[in-house]
């Protein structure tokens, strides 16, 4: 068995290094932590300016949709805390008070500025077990 040529090893190494770099850079820039309002509050000032995906429930009576500016403002809560959220764009038709939503955006220290608003879908392919009650997170099946 002959040894593979040096140029091949070099080429493979270049690909491997470039790949490692791409993966590192890609992960560093697009890893988004998924937290709830109370977890965000618990992080305190460390969380200021950070990018998150925030999930919770829309508090009824707090939703203001501005159709000319195309923004929506609401209070999002989990059992232990709540946070003010503004979001760009008119919310999807499924959006309503009391339901579970996930927003993605930046925490400014007082307000969560979301660039994306997703209505929470239950995982489609969960295998139901007899006697198993799905968690009451108000998602849309």
């Amino acid at each position: 068995m002959r040894r593979p040529a040096r140029s091949l090893i070099a080429g493979t190494l270049v690909i491997a290094v470039a790949l490692g770099f791409l993966v590192y850079q890609g992960l560093a820039s697009s890893l988004v932590y998924y937290i709830t309002p109370s977890e965000l509050l618990a992080r305190g000032v460390h969380a200021d300016g950070q990018h998150f995906r925030l999930g919770g429930q829309v508090v009824p009576g707090t939703v203001h949709i501005n159709r000319t500016m195309k923004t929506v403002r609401f209070l999002m809560r989990d059992p232990k805390g709540s946070i003010h959220v503004t979001s760009q764009g008119i919310p999807p038709p499924l959006f309503r008070a009391g339901m579970g939503v996930v927003v993605e955006g930046t925490w400014t220290g007082a307000l969560f500025r979301a660039t994306d608003l997703l209505v929470k879908h239950c995982s489609t392919y969960r295998a139901p077990e007899p006697g198993h009650v799905p968690p009451p997170d108000n998602c849309v099946t």
Binding site: L22, G26, L27, S29, S30, L31, V32, Y33, Y34
Partner: peptide, 10 residues
């Protein structure tokens, strides 16, 4: 956490 589409595109 989630790995967004930007990672895959990148």
């Amino acid at each position: 956490l989630s790995v967004g589409a930007p990672y895959f595109n990148h």
